[in-house]
């Protein structure tokens, strides 16, 4: 078995209720996927936070770079028409 300080890092996602999406809870170290799942249960669901857990190796996450913030996200700042609230709904439509 590898030493604890070389155990890979895992990201933990917990679904709190049926129908809701898994949400990122945090991360932990574990030697393998099975142990990661068990540890996630012990570390992140001990106060009834969830009914389903996903774990995945942190190394498999591909993240956007903060340097690319402007080109990636700034262009959508001035496009309010992409929000449904931008449009007036005719009264005849009623409750949507």
């Amino acid at each position: 078995m590898t030493q604890p300080d070389t155990w890979p890092l895992w990201e933990v996602f917990v679904r709190s209720k049926n129908g809701l999406a898994h949400k990122h809870s945090g991360s932990l170290h574990a030697p393998d996927a099975e142990t990661a799942l068990k540890s996630a249960r012990d570390v992140y669901t001990r106060r009834s936070e969830g009914i389903s857990i996903w774990v995945l190796p942190s190394s498999s996450i591909v993240a956007s770079s903060p340097d690319e913030k402007e080109p990636l996200f700034a262009p959508s700042d001035d496009k309010p028409y992409r929000h449904p609230t931008f449009y007036d709904i005719p009264d005849e439509v009623g409750h949507m």
Partner: peptide, 12 residues
């Protein structure tokens, strides 16, 4: 515990 994760597991 040897690592935080197992420490909390045994304490549970």
């Amino acid at each position: 515990g040897p690592v935080l994760e197992q420490d909390i597991a045994l304490t549970n």
